[in-house]
Amino acid sequence: MFELRLVQGSLLKRVIDAIKDLVNDANFDCSSTGFSLQAMDSSHVALVALLLRSEGFEHFRCDRTFSMGMSIANMAKMLKCASNDDIITIKADDGTDTVTFMFESPSQDKISDIEMKLMDIDSDHLGIPDAEYEAIVRMPSTEFGSICTSLSTIGDTVTIAVSKQGVTFSTKGDIGSGNITCRQNSSTEKPEEATIIEMKEPVVLTFALKYITTFTKATSLSSQVTISLSSDMPVVVEYKIAEMGHIRYYLAPKIEE
């Protein structure tokens, strides 16, 4: 028996919106710790890891650890039946091949029951060790999103360079080139508007903008984004989900041949 209840149902809609352009099908892992997922895109270049801790739910029951294979596109379709202020309950029983979503309006005058078929999905779980990063940039998520959108109109890749001067995002394309530098700015009274750079070593890495801009679909989940970089290592782009957990994206860098 698995049952979880999330009063802030729009959060689940936003989580699925943040994954659906990257991953087609995924196994959701259910355990007493919470509801989590690790999935790679079809080209095995990028990975998304989601954690929603059990404490963040109004009700969370999971009698035994198991995985539910779901089509993310179908899940997004089902969640379209929920209004943004609906309370969402997800239920699954042992041995069944369906999952039930229940959407309740806040005034309890409308209840929708939606059943979705589960899938068998073969997925490779990658072991990602905890690592120390050479540079960690924290900045407003909307700022990061608009930088990626702007640069992707010029080029296909973004080079992220962290130095004492700040973090520079640059691109080059057929029509020209561009670079945007954000300096450390921790003096702001609003912490969500701060840009903070922790740097042990200067880092310069190049990534495919196609993937990075897909990651920024998670912007609505968090006011700040954390970008962790080390030379010749995948970047980690993390959006914290308040009180619940996080969504982390990993992307392998472009390598000079």
Binding site: V45, G127, I128, P129, T157, A252, K254, I255, E257
Partner: peptide
């Protein structure tokens, strides 16, 4: 032209 790396080259499967 730089080549796209794959994640499996950095992280091991389990």
């Amino acid at each position: 032209v730089p080549k796209q790396g794959s994640l499996a080259a950095f992280y091991t499967g389990n």
